[in-house]
């Protein structure tokens, strides 16, 4: 069974239909790359999954529970439990500027009190090692490079042991020479079979790491498929036009 199932998702701002009947699935261990032109609704789709956007119709199922079923949201007390299966990494990192790297990692688990402080510290130490920032544990975000900030943001999301990680253009705010270190961390996660949905403009990365690509345009999924097929041999004119522009 798919771990995420989205069907007929609808969302509009006033009379602007941003998402029109979106339907797709994400299986465990999938790495799904979502591509498409600016304004096509990629962020809105991703944000709907973690309830940062309220949708107007359709269903979102995560594992065994429906976040929304036929446009009706679950009880407020259940929403948090359902979305807690997912972690999210933002384009602009959204680290907490008043907390050190370690504190950024630990603030949520400590407040949620599901683990002991010792276990939390153990995890944050492990994750810092994993992203190669052990020596920056006590630094504030202001003193990190963009690439370092994004790696910390990924570690922060991982602290809560999510089953699925969502990325919204994780490298778009970075200088080109810093994207590599972030993509490396994401690639490592893919190799550990983390389930990921990644909105990205990095076609090379999508081709390398994703096992499925969704092309969105104008609030719809135009086509989806294995990157080797979709990126090299697209079936739709709009996909072709977009890829031609992207690869120049």
């Amino acid at each position: 069974m798919a771990i995420i199932e989205v069907s007929n998702l609808k969302k509009s701002y006033g009379n602007l239909d941003v998402l029109k009947q979106i339907t797709f699935e994400v299986n465990k261990k999938d790495v799904v790359a979502v591509i498409g032109p600016s304004g096509s609704g990629k962020s809105t789709m991703l944000r709907s999954l973690v309830h940062l956007e309220e949708i107007d119709g359709g269903s979102i199922r995560v594992a065994d529970d429906y976040l929304v079923k036929d446009g009706v949201y679950s009880k407020p007390q259940d929403l948090k439990k359902i979305t807690s299966r997912m972690g999210m990494v933002f384009q602009h990192f959204n680290l907490f500027p008043h907390l050190t790297v370690t504190e950024n990692l630990e603030v949520a688990p400590r407040m949620l009190k599901r683990e002991s402080p010792v276990a939390i510290r153990h995890r944050s130490t492990e994750l810092l090692k994993k992203i190669g920032l052990t020596n920056r544990a006590d630094a504030y975000p202001a003193n990190l490079s963009g690439g370092q900030k994004q790696r910390v943001a990924i570690a922060r999301a991982l602290m809560l042991n999510p089953e699925i990680l969502l990325f919204d253009e994780p490298t778009s705010a970075l200088d080109p020479e810093l994207t590599g270190e972030v993509l490396k961390v994401m690639k490592d996660l893919a190799e550990e079979h983390m389930t990921m949905v990644i909105v990205t403009h990095e076609m090379g990365f999508a081709k390398d790491v994703a096992n499925r690509v969704l092309f969105m345009d104008n609030g719809q999924i135009i086509e989806s498929g294995h990157p080797d097929d979709l990126l090299t041999n697209p079936q739709h004119d709009r996909t072709r036009a977009f890829l031609n522009r992207s690869f120049n």
Partner: peptide, 24 residues
Amino acid sequence: GQYEASKVLGLSRWQTTRKIILPQ
């Protein structure tokens, strides 16, 4: 983005206000 990150990390409104928003 500070509110959004807090929400996705599972913090309640009050926890977000106290730990994230007010200090800033």
